[in-house]
Every structure is written in C-alpha cells, then in structure tokens.
Nucleic acid binder design. Structure first.
Length: 193
DNA sequence: TATGAGATCAACT
DNA sequence: GTTGATCTCATAC
C-alpha cells in the first residue's frame, strides 16, 4: 500500500484530535524531512495561542481555512512551523516541535552546520532551519509542494504532557510526542512514575 | 549539569 | 519599553 497523503479534510477537525494523530506522520519540505515526533496544540480560546487576542497581520493565516502552514518568527530570530486546523475562523493550529530526520540528512546538516543527527530537528526553530522553512512559506497549502505529509504507519505510542517555553496556560497537557523517541526537544515524563 | 546573556522582531502596554 | 510558542554559546559549579 502506498503511503496515505494527508489532505485538507484531515486538518478540518478539532485541533486536539489532529495533534496526536500527527505523531508518526512523515513531513517533507522540498523532499527533506522525516517523522513527526513532537507537536503542541493551540486553540483560539487558549491564552497561550497567538490567535487568542484576535487577528493581526502576523497570525492572519491562522484565521483562514485548515490545511495551511502558519510560519512566524520567534524571539526575533527563529522560524516556527504550524499547521492550521479546524473550520475556517476557528484560528487553531498545531505547532510542529520536532521530527526524526530521515530524508535529506546531508542538506539538513549543511543548513544547520551540525553533524549530531539527534539535534538536527529537536525544537521548532531547529526544525525550520534544517528544513529551510522561512517566513516566505507562510500561508502555503500543506497538500501540495513544497509540502508533503503522509499518514503514520502502524500505531505509534503517544505520550502527552505540558507544553514548553510558554508562561500562559502552562499547565494544559497539550504537548504530544512519540513515546521514547530520542529526537524529542525534551523528554516526556515516563508513565507510572 | 545549570544558569545567563545575546540575537532581534511583532505585538502589546 | 517590555515580553515572548527559541536557540546557541559562554561561564560557573
């Protein structure tokens, strides 16, 4: 069976359903990328979300239809990639925080000037630098080039926890990851301890 | 291993 | 002027 490509319908659902289902999916940008191992969900009712305080020039894409890329600059320096979810106007998105690099390793290493595979894409800013995603890619559809996203194969074991690097609504467990992956930006607490 | 500064931009007060 | 969905590098323990 050929890998199943994720289309706009996939993203046109609750961000809390889409986010965990993205774990194990394969994200490619111009043929470079790998398996998604860490994401975070942001909903417009969530004080930590960019869309919480309404539409601005920066977050306008979040208020558009699902299945598009929202790319923003973080701390004036890094780029971060999000997938817009839910019906248009809901202004919800999934932040892609880490992938396990599988395709185009040489190009990623060159862009990051780094040989440690583990740290190539472990974090939203690192991931965008490795894949070459920048602000000019803001608003691009996710179901056509340069993007390609394939559904997970098998049943990945999902871990959940609190989100990272935020000060508002910091206790909401809306971070999802592939349990036990060594490519996470930070480990999840092991269950049962 | 852990903390701290710096880079640098958009939104908010 | 301050803060933030970050990362790297330096310095200290």
């Amino acid at each position: 069976m050929p890998p199943l490509k994720l289309d706009r319908d996939f993203f046109n659902r609750s961000v809390h359903k889409v986010a965990p289902e993205l774990i194990g999916a394969t994200l490619l940008f111009n043929g470079v990328g790998g398996r998604i191992v860490e994401v975070e969900a942001y909903h417009h009712t969530d004080p930590a979300a960019h869309s919480h305080r309404g539409r601005t020039p920066r977050n306008a894409v979040m208020f558009g239809p699902p299945g598009y890329a929202y790319v923003y600059r973080s701390y004036g320096l890094h780029w971060c990639l999000n997938f817009v979810c839910e019906p248009e106007g809901s202004a919800s998105a999934v932040l892609i925080r880490a992938i396990e690099p599988t395709l185009g390793l040489d190009r990623m290493r060159r862009r990051r000037r780094l040989t440690d595979e583990r740290l190539l894409c472990a974090g939203p800013g690192r991931l965008c630098e490795a894949l070459g995603v920048t602000g000019t890619d803001n608003g691009l559809p996710l179901d056509s080039p340069p993007f390609e996203i394939f559904a997970p194969t098998g049943k990945p074991e999902i871990a959940a926890g609190v989100r990272i690097g935020i000060t508002k609504a910091a206790d909401l467990p809306w971070r999802y990851g592939l349990a036990g992956s060594r490519y996470l930006s930070k480990p999840f607490r092991q269950p049962g301890r």
